[in-house]
Design a protein around this nucleic acid. Sequence first.
DNA 1: TTGTATGCGTTATCAC
DNA 2: GTGATAACGCATACAA
Lengths: 335, 335
Amino acid sequence: MQNKKKIDIIELAKILNLSKSTISRAFRNSSDINKHTRQRILDKAQELNYHPNIYASSLRKRKSKTIAIIIPELANNFFSKAVNGIENIARSNNFHSLIYFTDSQVKKEIEITKNLLNGRVEGVIISATGEGTEPLHIKSLQRNTPVVFFDRVYDEIIAPKVVTDDYESSFKATELLLKNGCKRTAFFVINKNISIGKQRMKGYLDALKANGCKHNDKLILNCCNHFQENYKMISKFLKKEKPDGIFASVERLATCTYSVCKDKNISIPADIKLICYSSIDIADLLAPSLSTVTQPAYDMGAKAAELLFKQINEQQISDEKVTLTSRIDERASSQ
Amino acid sequence: MQNKKKIDIIELAKILNLSKSTISRAFRNSSDINKHTRQRILDKAQELNYHPNIYASSLRKRKSKTIAIIIPELANNFFSKAVNGIENIARSNNFHSLIYFTDSQVKKEIEITKNLLNGRVEGVIISATGEGTEPLHIKSLQRNTPVVFFDRVYDEIIAPKVVTDDYESSFKATELLLKNGCKRTAFFVINKNISIGKQRMKGYLDALKANGCKHNDKLILNCCNHFQENYKMISKFLKKEKPDGIFASVERLATCTYSVCKDKNISIPADIKLICYSSIDIADLLAPSLSTVTQPAYDMGAKAAELLFKQINEQQISDEKVTLTSRIDERASSQ
DNA sequence: TTGTATGCGTTATCAC
DNA sequence: GTGATAACGCATACAA
């Protein structure tokens, strides 16, 4: 399977009766090389299956043309689309993308960033777990490599960030429920201490206040990332608190609620109105169709990548914060 | 932001009054090094933010500890889960994963594989576009690097492959429609010439035959990857051919059909029964709940990665073909 | 336009 | 257990 006789630049030079610098030039579109010589070299290289060793050249040039993408998971359309956006921009810059998953655990995030301290990549795009008190691991990373955040950021860190109008959209989403008559509107969140959790909760709380609803702490439900556990928590919650409206800050909490309601014969939207953050493409095919707050996932990824390359190319610090707007699609579940 | 004074192994050696060989040993858990010396080195390294340059080391060791994952897209739960499986195995082998998307275009696949000829990775896991007559680009790649396929393979290529029982599952899925009374059962496919398309169609055709249904070429609909176009084709198809059963070989063709039926007031399953390949987690929340053939996506990715590492470690050719079985979940859409 | 010489930061081999 | 030295394969400054 493998071609054992790996040929290197020196051998190729010998065969062609040239010096290795000339060979090197041929592969770098160097201006000062005879077109004919160049073609001769490329032809022979192809014939002999010679390809410049990327690690030797990375070492010499001190450039790897590689970035890292660190995200919680892929089991989520939001991140899939964001990665797509990132990779597209990376590719158009002739960069390669390493991908890493944290499973929303700081422990893994720390592990991964440690592995990136050695110059393996020229930049990092991350959607953070947000856990932990102080993201020292990110600060360490920043000393060695440009870092750009998207969606899930560390407020304490100075770096370019791409986020959405979490506060405003959450405010509107909540208000939409209130306008439709909800008196006991609940907020479902995975972690109310991370960046997006905080903002979305703030939007929820302020919408309540602005509409004359008194806040009830019991109507805020802290969930996790596991379906079974969430299912139990939500079942219990619905039974005990009897909310008539739910704003889910994360898609999986909404779909889990759908499952619970289906099993318990609770009607959405008659008994409970629901709206949630989601990047799902088939929200209108659910029963009932799902009202959503949709983030421009692809654009967020692309923008984050652009900011990263700007930083890589211009070699300068920036703490630009780009805020894109989400779209609210009102469907049956909230009406 | 960046720590300009990058320190290297020689400087560290000087500072510690040691030779660089000793420094190197400290970072490679070399057996013959004094524990105390080692600790001294690691401490100082941390203090000075020294990290062994990965490219110098890759060059010297001729190992990159990196693999490439090439898939059509990520906008698809199947691939998301598969990537997750791959990355997990890679990580547990201390390997890094580069990710590339072909958008189902051979042109891009060729471009990507060309970029991998230079030893950037120690192995490649690919779910191919399947387009094109002869995958010469894969053969070229194989000369330089181990390659493992999953799901979408090139039959002509000799390499480890992880697939599912496409034929059998498609047979069963089709039969299920027939058993439920369908007389005009259609088959929706994106590309009936690629590996999985072929197998799934064969299963469909043989199920028809086995159940005494005569095959009608007009009931096979060749679609594409774009929603709008598919929407038009399917609309037209439903109107013209009036199928009463559909086996969609790809999830997006099923959801698109749902959209069409919803808009045209065609009832699933009363007018048309439907079953499809899908890795969606909320098939039971659709209206109606969607009958699915589900592939073990995560396991397929993990298995592919295992086969790749086996090949990397054992340095030997293999054309092992692993066939995992899909699960059929009968829900409302097909009954 | 081409060649020569040197260095990129490691690891491996061999001494000591 | 540690050090000196030669690769690893390429890119660049400088000379020709």
